[in-house]
Simulated scan of single mutants.
Amino acid sequence: MNAQRVAVVTGGSRGIGRAIATTLAARGFAVVVGYTRDAGAAKDVVGEIVAADGAAVTAQVDVAEAEAVEAMFGTAQDTFGGVDVVVNSAGRMTLSPIAELDLDDLDRLHRTNIRGTFVMAREAARRVRSGGAIVNLSTSVVGLGFPTYGAYVASKGAVEAMTMVLARELRGRDITVNAVAPGPTATELFFEGKDEETVQRLAKQPPLERLGTPQDIAEVVAFLAGPTGRWVNGQVIRANGGIV
């Protein structure tokens, strides 16, 4: 095994992605922090990692564009020598009743969540080294079926299906492929468009009676990316505090 393993994390500048990037760095990974627009936030993540004696660089990427994704993997190769773990955390969420959804919004959501995950998974399948791991981010709402989440759930259902297929396609490569499906998690994306009553109602639904934190999700991802998670493959882990 390589002296230092290398992780590529998309959506790494904020929320769950940021927590994943810093947690993997704390576990000894060199990290490529993928971001779309907020270069300052991505640089802050790298600064936090480097200040803790870790190794990290930023990479601007539109995950739906093959050339941009290839360039990001090239940055990992040129800077750190290869890729061992890929975490597809970049995502978009649009909430609306199905009957009222603007189809342009649907197209934008699916471009990031479905096409973006597919492009990332394709490049990961070509590049990840033996002993590596691919982790996609889904949502527990796939199983919960909350109103207004129809378009988002449709995109994440596709992510879960891709995860199962890719795990089987990589037979013999010693690469695991799993998805983590958070429940309600305290991120900017979660709070956007929700009033306090809605937030409190969702926080009370799990038996643990709280929202998840980005760190809760990052710890699950780190387990799947690390040596103790090697026997978990082709699974969707619903990290949601027992919400039903």
Rank of each mutant, 00 (worst) to 15 (best):
M1N: 15
N2W: 10
Q4S: 09
R5C: 05
T10D: 08
G11T: 04
R14G: 14
G17H: 00
G17L: 01
A19N: 05
I20L: 08
T23F: 01
L24A: 09
F29K: 06
V32N: 03
G34E: 02
R37H: 14
G40V: 11
A41V: 12
A42Y: 09
V45K: 06
V50A: 03
G54F: 01
A55M: 02
A55V: 06
V57M: 01
D62V: 03
D62S: 13
E67Q: 14
E67M: 13
E70Q: 13
F73A: 12
T79S: 10
T79G: 10
F80Q: 10
G81Y: 15
G81Q: 15
A90N: 07
S96Y: 01
I98C: 13
A99R: 15
L101P: 00
L101C: 05
D102K: 14
L106H: 13
R108P: 00
R111G: 12
F118L: 14
V119T: 07
M120H: 04
A121N: 14
A125F: 10
R126M: 10
G132K: 12
G132E: 05
A133L: 02
I134K: 03
T139D: 01
V142M: 06
L144H: 03
F146G: 09
Y149W: 15
A151Q: 07
S155W: 07
A158W: 05
M162A: 08
T163L: 10
L166Q: 08
A167M: 05
E169N: 06
E169F: 09
R171Q: 13
A181D: 07
G183L: 07
G183H: 08
A186G: 04
E192K: 08
G193F: 05
G193Y: 06
D195H: 02
E196I: 10
Q200V: 10
L202E: 11
L202Y: 10
L202V: 07
K204N: 08
Q205A: 14
P206M: 09
P206Q: 11
P206S: 13
P206A: 13
L208N: 12
E209F: 11
E209M: 11
E209C: 11
R210L: 11
L211H: 08
L211G: 12
T213I: 11
P214Y: 02
D216L: 01
E219I: 06
G226N: 13
G226W: 10
G226M: 04
G234I: 03
I237H: 01
R238D: 03
N240S: 12
N240Y: 00
G242Q: 05
